[in-house]
Design a protein around this nucleic acid. Structure first.
Lengths: 193, 193
DNA sequence: TCCGTTATGGACTGATTGGTTCCTAACTCT
DNA sequence: AGAGTTAGGAACCAATCAGTCCATAACGGA
C-alpha cells in the first residue's frame, strides 16, 4: 500500500561495491556513488541510511561473495591436496592483476583505511579476513605436507598465509610490477611444497 | 638578505610525517597538518608548495629514516645469520603494536591509498618497498639455510617476505588481534628456519 | 476512484576541503 | 639607517563534502 522502489536493492549494492572497490571508502564521493548506482540522493539515503551504513552493507556483500568464493575454493573437495587449493587463491589474485584489475581486495584496502578509526568497519574487516584464515586452516588440514603440524602450528601458519595474501593484494593495488607479484605467488608455492 | 624562516624545515617535516602516518594521506586535512607542524598556511605553502609535494617529501624522509633503519638491521654484520636479521624486522614491527603504536607502516598505508591514482606516490612507495626487499635479499645471502638457493630463487623469496611484511603491518593498522599478529611473526620464524 | 503511504529527485544546507592573496613583520646587506 | 627581499599570518576563495527537506509522483488497498 505504498509506492514501491524503482530499483533493485541488491543490484544497487552490487554497483556500490564496485565504486568503493575502485575508489576506497574515503575516496568514493557521494556523487561517485550516485552515478555508479544510478540513484538520486533521496533514494540512496532512504534505502541505505548514510555512506558508512552503505559501506558496511557493501562489506557484508563482499564477504558473502568474494570471501565466500575464496573459502569455497579453499575447501573444494575436487582438489584433494589443500596446498593446491591455497595456491589457487594466490594464482587467482595474480591473474586478476594480469587481466588488468588493479583494485586489489576491498577488505585489504579498508584495513589500511577507515578501519583505523572506525570500530564497526574494523570488525567487518577482521571478520572477513578471519573467514579466509579459517578457510586456509582447513585447507592446510588437507595438505599431506602439513598433516603432522599441531593445531596451534597450523593455525599460526594460516595466519601467516593470510598476511601474505593481504600483502600481495595491497601491493597489487599499489601497482607493483607484475614480476614481483609473480615471484610472491611462486615463492608461496615453493613454501607450501 | 631576507627574512629567515622562523621554523626548522626538517623539524616541520618530521612533524608532518607523524600526522600523515596517523591519518593517512587523504585523511590528513590541512588544519591537521598546520596544527601538527605548528605553522600557518602561508608558511606551509611557501616552504612545501602543496599537500602532495609535502607528502612526497615526507615519504622521502620516511625512506631515509624508517626504511633505512630497517635496511641497516637487515645488513647488520653483528648478527651473522641473515635469517635472524629478518626476524628482527618482524619482531620489531610486532613490538611496535604491543607498545601501542597501531599506525602500521606509512608506505603500506600509502600503497593501499593514494598510490592507486597517483603515479609519483606509487613510484615512491615502490622505491621504498624495493629498498626493503633488497635488504631482505642481502640478508638471505647471509643465511646458511638459504645459501644454496639460486639468485632468482632468493630474489623471489625476498619478494614473498616483503609481501608478508606489508600484510603484517597493514593488519596491525586494522587492529587485528595481537595473537594473530604474533602468530604471523612466529610462523615467519619457523619458515626461515 | 480516491485515500494513505512511501519513493523520488532536486534544491538547499552548513561545514570543510585545498589553495590564494596580500599586507605586514623581520631579517641581511650595503 | 635604509633598501631589498622573503617569511608570516589571517582573511578570503571557489569547490566539494555528506546529509536534509519537501513538493510531487507512483503505487496498493478499499
Amino acid at each position: 500500500m505504498a509506492r514501491p522502489r524503482s530499483f533493485d536493492t541488491e543490484d544497487a549494492l552490487e554497483k556500490a561495491m564496485h565504486v568503493f572497490w575502485t575508489h576506497g571508502y574515503e575516496g568514493a564521493s557521494l556523487p561517485d556513488l550516485l552515478d555508479g548506482m544510478g540513484l538520486t540522493r533521496g533514494s540512496l539515503y532512504k534505502a541505505f541510511t548514510d555512506k558508512k551504513t552503505l559501506f558496511l552493507k557493501v562489506l557484508e556483500r563482499y564477504e558473502g561473495q568474494a570471501v565466500k568464493a575464496g573459502v569455497a575454493m579453499l575447501s573444494d573437495p575436487a582438489v584433494p591436496n589443500g596446498s593446491e587449493r591455497i595456491m589457487s587463491l594466490f594464482q587467482g589474485s595474480y591473474q586478476r592483476v594480469v587481466n588488468g584489475d588493479m583494485r586489489g581486495c576491498l577488505l585489504c584496502t579498508a584495513a589500511a583505511g577507515p578501519s583505523t578509526y572506525d570500530d564497526e568497519i574494523a570488525r567487518a574487516v577482521s571478520r572477513g579476513l578471519g573467514e579466509l584464515r579459517d578457510g586456509i586452516y582447513t585447507a592446510l588440514g588437507a595438505s599431506p605436507k602439513h598433516a603432522t603440524l599441531s593445531t596451534a602450528e597450523r593455525a599460526a601458519l594460516a595466519d601467516m598465509i593470510i598476511a601474505q595474501y593481504v600483502g600481495l593484494r595491497t601491493m597489487a593495488r599499489a601497482r607493483i610490477d607484475h614480476e614481483t607479484l609473480h615471484n610472491i605467488v611462486r615463492s608461496v608455492g615453493v613454501m607450501l611444497g
